[in-house]
Design a protein around this nucleic acid. Structure first.
Lengths: 189, 189
DNA sequence: GACGAACTAGAACGAACGCTCTATCCAGAG
DNA sequence: CTCTGGATAGAGCGTTCGTTCTAGTTCGTC
């Protein structure tokens, strides 16, 4: 077998949760998509659905962070780098026919009042991405305090723009946000 | 009876969908919360759950638009007005213990692949809010094309910052976004 | 006072949910 | 070879889902 059953479960769960959210995705659907059986899922994740979701979100977190780093490193100038992020997200989103958005937003919103581990995993992801952006800004010579606040805004704006792009089925919101964020970053000199 | 049964259903559905999303909210729960019976719900909304959700989202749309207009009109300067929006959202969010976020995001993300009427209603809401912000910017003397692009970014950023604030259980993301957006708006002179 | 429409009330349906359970398979240790 | 324990397999549990259905109630109009 190429990939382990466990990995296939996490991968399938990650994709499904990203597209349909936590409550919208069933354990049986995950098992089917992963070419695994229900027994296997509960064998590897005794914690049940929530445990699977946490693993899935952490996986999506890492994947997205890598994407972000790659886009940021493709440009020297921080403003251009942020714009490159938006552009990358836009093309990826279009390629998936607007369904593969942010891997944590949907799950995060659905589990807000429930103080489950899922929420914690989502918060960790957002914090991590902000750190990735902040690092780039600091390396480009922006003061640490400014970089942190700017990075938070960049992540929030990209997140919001991605949702908007998905709903509108258009790359424009992301491209707009990229241009405006670049303009904003450029004011820190 | 103070409010009509229909109105109570829409109101309850709006609140529940905002907090738990579309799939996470059951018809029976809506009926219970609205002090109505299942029969009443299907009487007023023969289209079933989806019809209730569409009405609920449209209601949330109007409510949010009014909130936005109010905040924008409270300040003459467009940069200060945008910041006031973020501030208002932040205090409202904290007051609800971080559960009453954007009334359409959750529902929009869950119904992405399904081309239901819900998605259309969400897209309409986002477009409407963007128009509200764009109007304010134009009235403040910003060129129409710039105002539209800027308004789109403002809405996206506020949306994303609200989600981030909910996940982090902190007002900071929204306040940050407000400051940075104000700075961005101020560059258009 | 009678009639039809509007509305309320909740029992019941099939499907899907998350989860538990037992049974089977199979590689490696003794 | 037997024995053992991780991994696989899926039937079935109780519950909840969205929806449908039939009565019952209310009420303005003739």
């Amino acid at each position: 077998m190429q990939t382990s059953t466990r990995d296939r479960i996490v991968l399938a769960a990650s994709r499904l949760v990203q597209r349909q959210g936590y409550v919208g995705t069933g354990i049986k659907q995950i098992a089917k998509e992963a070419d695994a059986t229900l027994g296997s899922v509960y064998h590897f994740f005794p914690g049940g659905k929530e445990a699977v979701a946490v693993a899935a979100i952490r996986h999506g977190d890492q994947e997205f962070a890598a994407l972000l780093r790659e886009a940021l490193d493709s440009q020297e100038d921080p403003a251009a780098a942020v714009d490159a992020c938006a552009r990358l997200l836009a093309t990826a989103l279009r390629a998936s026919d607007w369904v593969d958005g942010c891997p944590v937003t949907a799950a995060a919103l659905e589990t807000l009042g429930t103080d489950s581990e899922i929420q914690q995993a989502c918060a960790d992801a957002l914090r991590g991405w902000q750190d990735v952006v902040a690092d780039k800004l600091v390396r480009a010579g922006i003061a640490r305090a400014d970089a942190r606040e700017l990075a938070g805004t960049v992540i929030s704006a990209l997140e919001g723009a991605e949702v908007t792009a998905q709903v509108m089925r258009s790359e424009e919101p992301l491209l707009q946000a990229g241009r405006q964020l670049a303009r904003l970053v450029a004011t820190y000199r």
